[in-house]
């Protein structure tokens, strides 16, 4: 697709940073405020969509590559399933950080959460914020790949001749058909 005008490019340059920061804020605070892994990852992927629309596919093809996003997505997935294996001392997906046995790891989301209305403490939650980060990484990688693959231009093959052959024996109004397929 063709790049857009200078105003759009300038606003994209200004806004991209804010969108990325907001997306990561939604990912990291998933255990306190509405949001979490998938929602924050989708917000970050919308920044990728904005870049592709504003800059056009030629310049984006030089800078953003599928392989980088594919590696980001794969690492997010492996981190998610791997974090489940860490709790195998008790069960799979056991919240091994929220139990106050491992006092040396209390800095890593180990504090006790308060029940009832409270101003949220980000240090709580155990392994859940780490799972949020893994899911957020994975979703931003996956949605960016889907966007990059769908928004780039392509040329459709000429398949119309075969369709007309196969439907010629059935339809009475062939001219109406030709107009329809030409219009599609």
């Amino acid at each position: 697709m063709t790049p857009m005008s200078k105003i759009v490019v300038l606003v994209t340059n200004l806004l991209c940073g804010f969108i990325l920061v907001f997306g990561f804020y939604v990912i990291v605070h998933g255990h306190l405020t509405p949001g979490g892994g998938f929602q924050g990852g989708a917000v970050v992927a919308s920044a990728c969509a904005l870049v592709v629309i504003a800059y056009g596919d030629k310049r984006v093809k030089e800078r953003l590559s599928y392989d980088a996003f594919s590696a980001i997505e794969a690492s997010g997935l492996i981190a998610f399933v791997g974090l489940g294996f860490f709790g195998l001392g008790a069960t799979f997906f056991y919240n091994f950080l929220a139990v106050e046995r491992i006092s040396s790891l209390r800095w890593l989301f180990g504090a006790k959460a308060l029940i009832g209305p409270n101003p949220g403490d980000i240090n709580t939650g155990g392994v859940i914020p780490l799972l949020n980060l893994a899911v957020g990484t994975e979703v931003l990688g996956a949605l960016s790949i889907v966007l990059l693959l769908m928004l780039m231009t392509y040329t459709p093959k000429r398949g119309e001749a075969e369709i007309e052959e196969s439907t010629a024996g059935r339809r009475a109004q062939e001219t109406g058909e030709k107009h329809e397929t030409g219009g599609n």
Partner: peptide, 9 residues
């Protein structure tokens, strides 16, 4: 499908 058939009807 559009790439192969040329139509999406």
């Amino acid at each position: 499908i559009y790439r192969h058939y040329g139509t999406i009807d």
